[in-house]
């Protein structure tokens, strides 16, 4: 059961800026097993974003090993990386990145458009199922500007789920949301994790880290902490115990 989804060994990533070489990652190693809920934390400049890009197969390491679901990234071409992203990764972004003036259903269908094996009929039924899973079955025809921030992020999560990826990769996915909505979204992530989805959540908010099962903290391109949280708190609990909104009083 506990198979490694991600295997990272001595990962390095250098950038050349002018004549200087910036070493964003200086040899990072860790494994992520199936069913984990991992948060990657770090201040800006810690290498967090570079880590996210490599995890998301948008960027390739300068040196070191990265196996995603037993596939080595280093040797893949651009097109093969695109295919891998399409099949194995579900992205959730801070700013949702939904197509404007396009219905929620069409937005969710989008990743499947790049998979020629899926018929239009299957595409639609899978998109509907994904929207139902995030609790938006009644909003399929709505365009992003008719949806609240929280609902938009749910559509984005449905889009990430629709191709049944091995890992959900979230980049500050609650960064644009108020705290109540953030907890709602995190509750959704926890629920998905309980159903077996592997989640990697990149954030700088310690609150969120406390809801995950494991936290890796980066600083200056190194892992400085790797903590397993045995009994993560429930986002639902937070929701129920939120201070009363004083605007309404």
């Amino acid at each position: 059961m506990e198979q490694a989804i991600i295997h990272i060994e001595n990962l390095k990533r250098n950038f050349t800026v002018g004549s200087e070489t910036v070493r964003a990652l200086k040899g990072v190693s860790f494994d992520v097993k199936e069913g984990e809920f991992l948060t990657i934390m770090g201040a800006s400049g810690s290498g967090k974003t570079t880590m996210l890009n490599i995890l998301g197969c948008l960027d390739r390491p300068t040196d070191g090993k990265y196996l995603l679901d037993n596939v080595s990234i280093a040797s893949l071409s651009k097109n093969e990386l695109a295919r891998l992203r399409n099949h194995k990764i579900g992205f959730v972004f801070q700013s949702f990145n939904l197509l404007p003036r396009t219905s929620a259903l069409e937005n969710v269908e989008l990743p499947l458009l790049y998979n020629s094996k899926i018929s239009s009929k299957e595409r639609k039924s899978r998109a509907i199922a994904a929207l139902e899973a995030v609790g938006l079955a009644d909003r399929m025809g709505h365009t992003p500007n008719q949806l609240s921030g929280g609902q938009q992020q749910r559509v984005a999560i449905a889009r990430a789920l629709v191709n049944d990826p091995v890992m959900l990769l979230a980049d500050e996915a609650t960064g644009n949301l108020d705290s109540k909505t953030s907890y709602e979204i995190l509750a959704l992530f926890q629920e998905l994790n309980q159903k077996g989805k592997t989640i990697v959540f990149v954030t700088h908010e310690p609150d969120i880290a406390s809801l995950s099962k494991r936290t890796i903290t980066l600083r200056d391109g190194h892992i400085i902490k790797d903590i397993i949280i045995d009994n993560p708190k429930s986002a639902k609990w937070y929701l129920e115990n939120l201070p009363v909104n004083d605007d309404e009083i």
Binding site: N79, A82, R85, F93, N97, L99, L110, Y114, N115, N163
Partner: peptide, 16 residues
Amino acid sequence: TREIGLRMAIGGREID
């Protein structure tokens, strides 16, 4: 540009 970035992230190849 962002839409293009998104499409690439979710699996759109250059040719797509």
